[in-house]
Design a protein around this nucleic acid. Structure first.
Lengths: 202, 202
DNA sequence: CCAATACGAGACGGTCTCGTATCGTTACCC
DNA sequence: GGGTAACGATACGAGACCGTCTCGTATTGG
């Protein structure tokens, strides 16, 4: 899916193999799955795992950071478009998407590692934050805004706080605990409990 | 604060300097604050930063992992004992403690890194999880149980889920975003919103 | 004073990765 | 088929760390 930067469409000579692009990213993912920390990951090791010469990697990416950014991007799927029927169901859809993502075995330990490394280099994190996370949050905010207008959500609650109220429990479980902490039905339970409130009779 | 294991109380010879213990841990913290990733941290670098010979480090800890565990422990403060007046106030106390922790600048980026590295080595993570996190969660669960008995909390909600509902938003902000995302009053707002619920009139 | 141990400094041999360069081979465009 | 660039492999020198060890010195208890 993810194609590294290609400066010009070179017309002469053997073209770069897109399969090799993918093989390199796959190798990086495989190593990360096996528990390697991002810091302990090396271009050399990735090339070895991919069955590829080091130069082939360096031909595509200038260094580990840029490669990591593409690795992270390769994990992204288009988030589902909320159906727009009820706000409650849309919220469940979004959280359920997050849950399956965390379960996807690759992503759980992986996202944690990548997020940490990204944070270290502020520029990379900003790029990822602005491209990917911002879009997700915007989608969520739109749903919340609709809920506020339709009366399904109180209008005296900060939407930003609200977003974290819904996503926080899912995220913190995925990052702190193991995959088993994201059981079936968790999305519904979070949404319904936050909507209804915890104290009896509101 | 944190003293590395000392196998026996050696009676003869020059005793180890507790000041050196602290200097090493301080150096590690300093490097982590400066943005070094845990993976990129080296015993050699820590010793250099501390103005200490490498052997002095190896005399105290068998390797980086063990040292990291003590570094992590050195960040722990005793969590506040909930006053026990109202469950709502106790929850605010706990969350406010988490917030100040995340703000402490050392801990924000630091906890993120350390948690990631700990997760890599399952044994260390289990040790930390059982010693520190479990105690915190137990304290929180006790408050929630009391709230359920006193009628301040509905009795049809899973306490485990409830704990994440309260702590998740704070944790995910601290880990994903920057320090500025933990503003004054956040603890109260989370607790009150989760208690009251988001939909109007409960 | 003496034995024992910790200390800072750093030498040591080893492993690992870096990023570059050079092989002969391979695949594609014109 | 000829030109050209990507390919896998591997060599290269530089440099970071590893964990152990040995200096000479400092600091304790007996």
């Amino acid at each position: 899916m993810t194609a590294p930067e290609r400066t010009e469409p070179r017309l002469r000579g053997r073209p770069r193999s897109p399969a090799t692009d993918a093989a390199i990213i796959e190798a990086a993912l495989r190593l990360l799955e096996e528990g390697a920390s991002v810091g302990g990951l090396s271009i050399e090791g990735i090339a070895r795992e991919a069955g590829v010469g080091k130069a082939t990697v360096y031909r595509r990416w200038p260094g580990k950071d840029a490669l990591m950014l593409d690795v992270l991007r390769s994990l992204e799927e288009p988030s589902p478009e909320p159906a727009g029927v009820s706000v409650r169901d849309d919220l469940v859809t979004i959280l359920e998407f997050m849950r399956r993502r965390g379960l996807a075995k690759r992503n759980s330990a992986l996202l944690r590692s990548l997020v940490t490394q990204m944070h270290a280099h502020n520029e990379l994190w900003r790029a990822y934050d602005e491209n990917v996370i911002a879009a997700r949050r915007a989608s969520l905010r739109a749903v919340l805004r609709r809920g506020r207008e339709s009366g399904e959500i109180r209008d005296d609650v900060d939407l930003e706080l609200l977003a974290d109220l819904f996503t926080g429990p899912m995220l913190s479980r995925a990052m702190l605990h193991e995959w088993k902490e994201l059981p079936e039905g968790l999305a519904e339970r979070i949404v319904d409990t936050v909507l209804a409130g915890v104290s009896p009779r509101g």
